[in-house]
């Protein structure tokens, strides 16, 4: 089976390291994929705030493009690693399915651009693919550098499992925990997994956003986590890059490694840190390197 990889805007910029690590892990697990040709922005949260129908057509165009690109495959699976993209694509499908009139408008508009929106593609999150298509056992077999002794606090952020996804529990998701358990890590039990980090406000209303990130980082430290793993480029950026600002504001020390779950998985699979975009992190996760035998810190 072949997947369509829909990166979305942020995996090409702030989330570059997410893309690098994801694709490296895909290769390591023999997952075949093609990047979606000439994809456009999913519309994200901001577009929905201005014009709903256009937001839906933006997302629908990508789905239609994927259906076209994989027209010879039995089923079309779109992997959307960015949680906003993932949520918007799911939301679009659900909304159009429930509103045939809007579906007709969107279909007709796409038809004029030579695209056929069949609404059949499956929207998948990489976690869903890893756990349900590959499986924990298969992944465990390929782990060459077990995460022994590493306490992982898995953090999904808000839009990965809320409100439309069905691959995990919306209140207490566990797929990431299962993944890292398979990789030999210790799992931190905490209630921050889906608490909003405030990323969509950090750029705009920072006074509101910083406390939200502080709560999450503070709690991770309190629970003696070695690393926080995220599945969202906004969360990762927000929780990692604002640590200095947070510490200044709250007069605390929240320094903790916040990396993509694909980066940690990649390290466990024995991949080169550089291939996983580790060099693009603000601070090198030296803690992890010390524990993962053989890994060497890579500085910029």
């Amino acid at each position: 089976m072949k997947y369509i990889y829909y990166p979305g805007c942020s995996l090409k910029s702030t989330g570059k390291l997410y893309e690098e690590s994801l694709l490296a892990v895909f290769d390591a697990l023999d997952i075949k994929y093609e990047e979606l040709n000439d994809w456009n922005c999913c519309g994200a949260t901001a577009y929905m705030a201005v014009d709903e129908k256009k937001a839906f057509v933006l997302a629908a165009r990508n789905i239609a493009l994927a259906e076209e690109q994989l027209k010879d495959e039995a089923e079309v699976n779109i992997v959307a690693p960015c949680s906003a993209c993932y949520m918007i694509l799911l939301k679009t499908q659900k909304f159009l399915e429930e509103n045939p009139e809007d579906m007709a408008v969107i279909k007709a508009a796409l038809k004029e651009s030579g695209l056929d929106y069949k609404a059949k593609a499956k929207i998948r999150h990489p976690l869903d693919v890893f756990l349900n298509d590959i499986g924990e056992q298969e992944i465990a077999k390929r782990i060459t550098k077990p995460l022994k002794g590493i306490r992982v606090a898995s953090y999904y952020g808000c839009q990965t499992v809320r409100p439309y996804s069905t691959f995990d529990d919306q209140r207490n998701p566990v797929t990431m925990d299962r993944l890292f358990k398979a990789a030999g890590a210790e799992i931190v039990d905490w209630s921050m997994k889906t608490r909003c980090c405030g990323a969509s406000l950090t750029g705009t209303i920072q006074e509101v956003a910083l406390p939200l990130s502080y709560i999450i980082l503070h709690e991770a430290k309190k629970r003696r986590a070695d690393v926080v793993t995220t599945a969202c480029s906004l969360c990762q950026f927000n929780l990692e890059c604002y640590q200095t600002n947070i510490d200044k504001k709250f007069k605390t020390d929240t320094k903790i490694d916040v990396i993509y779950f694909t980066q940690l998985l990649g390290l466990a699979l024995g991949l080169e840190p550089k291939k996983l975009g580790i060099n693009r992190l603000f601070a090198q996760p030296e803690n992890l390197f010390r524990i993962i035998e053989g890994g060497k810190p890579v500085y910029v």
């Binding site: 000439d38 994809w39 456009n40 129908k53 256009k54 057509v57 933006l58 165009r61 809007d102 408008v105 969107i106 007709a108 508009a109 796409l110 004029e112 651009s113 030579g114």
Partner: peptide, 18 residues
């Protein structure tokens, strides 16, 4: 994106149609 024109047309078309 490469096909900027067609995207613009698409968005315009949704507007007209709705």
């Amino acid at each position: 994106i490469k096909d900027k024109k067609s995207l613009k047309r698409l968005l315009q078309s949704v507007e007209d149609k709705s």
